[in-house]
């Protein structure tokens, strides 16, 4: 569930190996080329575009009532009128898939952006300052990382009433740790480079040095990691819904649809679990493939092989 994000710190010992990962603008084209060579990544990207269109444009073409429940038409099997049937409250499942997808995608993307931004700030400050500040900041990361994300999320969700912005923040709170570690590791190796020394010698402020000379070089790592975080966030939100601490109806997300459907799955209402379940799996697989492709594209070290 904690996909690449959980794996990355284990590679921390090889931090210096990541030194070869900076995307130079001259190589940007070749990075794009490498990405296109990763066939599954291209398929994944295409699928994600389709999912985005499906969720955000779909409701304009396939109009359904997703606000008021109507038990008269509850749990109808798929038919010409309701392509994927209706759920226990009489909501059209296909329409609900679009609505729920909006939440899942918004929270997934939002949490990844929040997590990556927090991680960049934390990691670059720690790496650039070094010494005691670095030690303290990294021990904080270790401490939060030691607490299982789901336990933290459960406690946070008890305190804060989940809504889309709140979900983005609370999932973001558990997603900044790995980017922070990665950025710190990269900053540590980058700050010993000559061009960083040079910028300091010509009198650039510390903030400018970090923003102009270090962060652009860490960008590849951040983007790759943020992609995997999107996948994690979609699944984490699903778990929160399963544990009863998700978003409240009539709003929904794929995880909530799936966990609501579980109660009916044993009665043979397969259309309540397979559409959201398969959609989550395909979307998360697609995001992971795109992440793999981006990593191949950005990591020169891997490209050599």
């Amino acid at each position: 569930m904690l996909t690449e994000a959980a794996l990355a710190p284990a590679a921390g010992l090889g931090d210096s190996d990541y030194g070869g990962t900076r995307p130079r603008f001259s190589t940007l084209r070749s990075a794009g080329h490498t990405f296109l060579e990763h066939r599954m990544a291209v398929v994944g990207l295409g699928f994600l575009l389709f999912v985005v269109l499906f969720c955000f444009v779909g409701p304009l073409l396939y109009k359904t009532n997703q606000v008021s429940a109507n038990v008269v038409v509850a749990t109808l099997p798929p038919s010409g009128q309701h392509w994927l049937g209706t759920d226990e409250n009489g909501f059209d499942v296909l329409g609900r898939l679009m609505l729920g997808g909006q939440t899942s995608l918004e929270v997934g993307l939002g949490a990844a952006i929040v997590g990556a931004s927090m991680g960049v700030v934390w990691g670059s400050v720690a790496g650039f300052c070094g010494g005691v500040i670095d030690s303290i900041m990294m021990r904080v990361v270790d401490a939060v990382l030691a607490l299982p994300a789901l336990l933290l999320l459960l406690v946070l969700a008890v305190i804060i009433q989940p809504s889309v912005p709140m979900l983005i923040i609370i999932v973001g709170v558990v997603s900044w740790l790995v980017p922070a570690r990665l950025v710190r590791g990269e900053t540590l190796t980058l700050k010993t480079r000559e061009y960083v020394d040079a910028s300091r010698v010509v009198g650039a402020s510390r903030r400018r040095t970090v923003a102009r000379h270090i962060l652009p070089n860490v960008l590849g790592t951040i983007i790759v990691n943020a992609t995997f975080q999107v996948a994690d966030a979609i699944i984490l939100v699903a778990y929160l819904s399963f544990l009863g601490l998700g978003i409240s109806p009539p709003a929904t997300n794929w995880g909530a649809m799936l966990s609501d459907g579980l109660n009916y799955a044993l009665s043979g209402y397969w259309w309540l679990i397979f559409p959201p379940g398969v959609t989550i799996v395909l979307t998360v697989v697609a995001v992971n493939y795109v992440g793999d492709g981006l990593r191949d594209a950005f990591e020169v070290r891997l490209r050599v092989r």
């Binding site: 579980l262 679990i273 379940g277 989550i280 697989v285």
Partner: peptide, 25 residues
């Protein structure tokens, strides 16, 4: 390698409760 990677990604992208209910079914 590609086939196994694909399978791994599917399991790894599956919410645990979805996998659980599929196994139960």
């Amino acid at each position: 390698d590609h086939v196994i990677t694909g399978l791994e990604l599917v399991f790894y992208s599956m919410p645990v409760f979805f996998l659980g209910i599929l196994l139960i079914l």
